[in-house]
Amino acid sequence: MATTVETPPTGQRESRPAPPGTGRRMRSSYPYWFYLPAAAVYTALFLLPTLAAFFFSLTRWTLFEYEFIGFDNFVQFFREPALVKGLTNTLIYAVVTCGLKVVLGLLLAVLLTSRVIGRGFLRSVVFFPVLVSTIGVGITFTVLMHPSEGAINQVLSLVGVDGPAWLTDPSWALLSVAFVDVWKGVGLATVIYIAGVVSIPREYYEAAEVDGASALQRFRHVTLPLARPATVTVIILSLIGGLRSFDLIWAMTGGGPGFTSDVIASVIYKQYQAGFYGLSTAGNVVLFLLVSAIVVPLFWFLNRREAEA
């Protein structure tokens, strides 16, 4: 009897074989047709389109008829400056947002697990923007970041700093959106890190303290390595989110000025609007390959290192 009980913490990684006999004996209680409703919706509206994308990316397509044109769409994707810009911007955006979320998320989590007054208030306040409409946040910050009238530059000018034109300056537009993305998303990174930091046994800190480790050394040699699973999660999640990101950019700059803040997802939308369905779908395939090429090896690498350590 005891063998049939699952051990919760390892239950997520189903690498161990099931106890012999269990599956057969219980067969009728766990029928495969329970998969069916979920599988039908998932296959029709997710798997099928994903596979079809590979074919239609090689065509000139009107939704009703298509003409096979080989790799022309991809050639265009990597040749036209506006589209190449979208590709590099996607990478910059993902790396900047991911990096800032990791660093700020960890620092905020350390602060919010320490003894500060008003900890509950502070945690709620950091997390709330995660739940707010992205479009609403985008519009609010578009106004706050207005080059001359906006509250941010008004405050900066009070302390004698001449703030940049943020969203209307081509060299700042993408970064400005990335900052707002971090403002909205850092709360999620923080709560993940808090969960990680809280799970570190107190004894480690006490032992380090007895050995005379300073606060900085305790952070460097206890918190940082032991919060590693949280770091992995934050990196993976924010990279996936950053690479796909569309709504915030669309609400704040629409890819502008010009196409200086376009990312792949906004290129996909623009080509779709313009009726270039084949090219738009090629963009989807590029995004798919980019996400897989970055996230899958990273996932494998980070989890491997974790297993060794």
């Binding site: 699952e6 239950g11 189903e14 074989p17 099931a18 269990t22 599956g23 219980m26 067969r27 209680s29 766990y30 495969y32 998969y35 998932y42 509206l45 997710f46 798997l47 099928l48 389109p49 994903t50 079809a52 994308a53 239609f56 397509w61 939704l63 996936i240 690479l243 796909r244 997802a265 996909i268 939308y269 779709y272 369905y277 738009s280 779908t281 989807n284 395939v285 995004l287 798919f288 996400v291 897989s292 996230v295 899958v296």
Partner: peptide, 28 residues
């Protein structure tokens, strides 16, 4: 979760892909 079989691995893989793969818009 309850029934371990040959399907478990592939289904888990499909579940993970759903988290990672950006949906293809026009084909949908």
């Amino acid at each position: 979760q309850r029934r371990r079989s040959r399907l478990t691995g592939p289904v888990n893989l499909l579940v993970l892909s759903g988290l990672i793969i950006p949906p293809a818009v026009v084909p949908t």
